[in-house]
Design a protein around this nucleic acid. Structure first.
Lengths: 341, 341
DNA sequence: TTGTAGGCGTTATCAG
DNA sequence: CTGATAACGCCTACAA
């Protein structure tokens, strides 16, 4: 910046004013300064800026690049953040780098707020992080509503409920659900299954995959469990898309047709769900909305620090594809009863 | 830091020495300082540090979270960078945020080097960025070898060559290739196809998809082109996995079996290629190796700034799955000629 | 082993 | 509109 000032023979303060678009400089000066900045390849020193500024204008985002769906939320966070006059600082959680380490780095950047996407931590650990942060913390797709941090999540119960309801409308009476106790959103999704099945007057059929998480492997495990049974359910509701895909693979190898023999649903509407070879009926949680809700929550608490943390719920919608169809048995009955055809 | 010093009644410099594990403090003091730092929830101010330090210890990484495969390379960059005593600064390219903007931000952090993953820019644009950077720039999976920036890429010619060779060994004589002129690595892959086909004494069959990029849509377009022909080739080599999947969708809708009627290969071994419903034979470029090679190149040129930029080639390997098989015709011929069975 | 002083690039303040 | 000056938190030399 001093270079530009010297080059033009003006003060550094003036240059600073122009580059920040502050009032107090003539249009002609603005032109000249901006021109010189371009020519000299000037780029503001972000560290020096945050050092000097009383309040930080950065929102820190910790996420796992390898987790399906999280990069989409990160994409949505950018425009929402910039719109509100903030900048985004990214920090990755990887196999060799814990979420705590990623968050610690964000503290180093003196972020005005931090957003944690899908941390695989329990409520106590998240509260510890939030207290240590001394700035507002927003947790996306994990955690529980509480007084330490904001929570943004999709209405997992509604989403699973929509899937069950869709299957009921197709005529299914035996709807199994793949449950993974260890994952944060699992409890809510299970609740949605319980309620929807009760509403339809059907029997619960919960396949618990203990210790597993939302991976293809856990879905495959559930699939093998099902294959050991004498009789398969007519429909399976998986906890997420990856699980559904693991299940799909085990079933297709075993010669079980989807949706011919068994209907299958997922959750998240990740990219793989859209492939024509998979074409999964799934509950869509819009990453766009998740990102916007997270930034809104962060800015809200930056502006009003004493406000109580909130729970923001993004409503999912059901995307019907070809992995669900009428059950065989139902079609047979329908033939005898033309009013249902 | 001043807080800690005041709290303990020592100088700030001493605290700095202890926290950086530099020589010049007694063990007892170290204990006390570290204890106090923990209690007070101290976290070093990264901005102030980079401001003061003569040389930066950060490597900037610009990537597109939404592009398949790039997050995996980012994951690999972390351990390699930390191992060499550097830190990672991430900057995302999104639909609303160009690669140039992402790189500009990295300049703001005064990174010691920048790594650009899969930029959709031509050589001239990349050279402009590299010159503006004034620090070493490394381009992964794009660009051309030159004097302005390092290039890390997989040996696209070898990868496609392996695919063609595999198909030739299976007995294919009509092997088509889907070419997308606009994508940076495409020229090299085409070259690999030309050479391998020539080596096998076969006829070239290049399906050009003009103006398109490496998306499912471009694969679908190539698929429709092929369906317009009187006779299909027995094998198709796609430019990447996504393209192969687009082609797969068009073919399966048209009732053409893979690999029954046509064998198909991809490139990249992205996650979708592994799905049992896709199960694509593809050339694998190891993200681990790509990440390590990129960091090596960056550090090499930080240490020796006058060294000429290099080209690092990561050798791909062929992952054979069930999308490739012997052609129908060949099997028939084999029956008449037992020596080939 | 400990303390002191100066400066990195920027912004804010205040007097010309 | 300009110029001078202080301060942000940290690191490095050098002095005690």
């Amino acid at each position: 910046m001093a270079d530009i000032a010297a080059h033009l023979g003006v003060s550094r303060a003036l240059v600073s004013i122009v580059l920040r678009d502050m009032p107090g400089a003539s249009d002609e000066t603005r032109q000249r300064v901006k021109q010189a900045a371009k020519e000299l390849g000037y780029s503001p020193h972000i560290g020096a800026r945050t050092l000097r500024q009383y309040r930080s204008r950065e929102i820190g985002v910790a996420f796992a690049p390898a987790h399906a769906g999280e990069p989409d939320i990160v994409e949505a966070i950018y425009p929402a953040t910039i719109e509100r006059g903030y900048r985004v600082v990214l920090s990755a959680q990887t196999g060799h780098r814990s979420m705590e380490t990623a968050v610690e780095e964000l503290f180093g950047y003196r972020c005005a707020a931090i957003i944690l996407i899908g941390p695989e931590l329990d409520d106590a650990e998240l509260q510890a992080i939030a207290r240590r942060a001394r700035v507002p913390a927003v947790v996306v797709n994990s955690g529980e509503p509480n007084r330490a941090y904001d929570v943004v999540r999709s209405a997992g119960d509604t989403g699973i409920g929509l899937a069950v309801q869709h299957l009921v409308e197709l005529g299914h009476h035996q709807i199994a659900y793949v449950h993974t106790a260890s994952m944060p959103p699992a409890a809510l999704r299970l609740q949605g299954y319980r309620r929807a099945v009760a509403d339809a007057g059907l029997k619960l059929d919960i396949i618990s995959v203990p210790g597993a998480d939302y991976t293809e492997e856990s879905g495959a495990e559930a699939g093998r469990d099902l294959l050991d049974r004498r009789e398969l359910p007519t429909a399976v509701v998986a906890g997420n898309d990856q699980q559904a895909i693991g299940l799909l693979q085990v079933f297709s190898r075993a010669g079980i047709a989807i949706p011919g023999d068994v209907s299958l649903t997922g959750y998240d509407d990740t990219r793989v769900a859209r492939l024509s070879s998979v074409d999964l009926t799934t509950a869509r949680q819009d990453p766009q909305q998740m990102g916007q809700a997270a930034v809104s929550a962060a800015v809200r608490r930056i502006d009003q620090p004493n406000r109580r943390p909130m729970l923001s719920i993004v409503e999912p919608s059901l995307v019907v594809r070809s992995s669900t169809a009428r059950p065989r048995r139902w079609v047979t009955q329908a033939r005898h009863n033309p009013t249902q055809g």
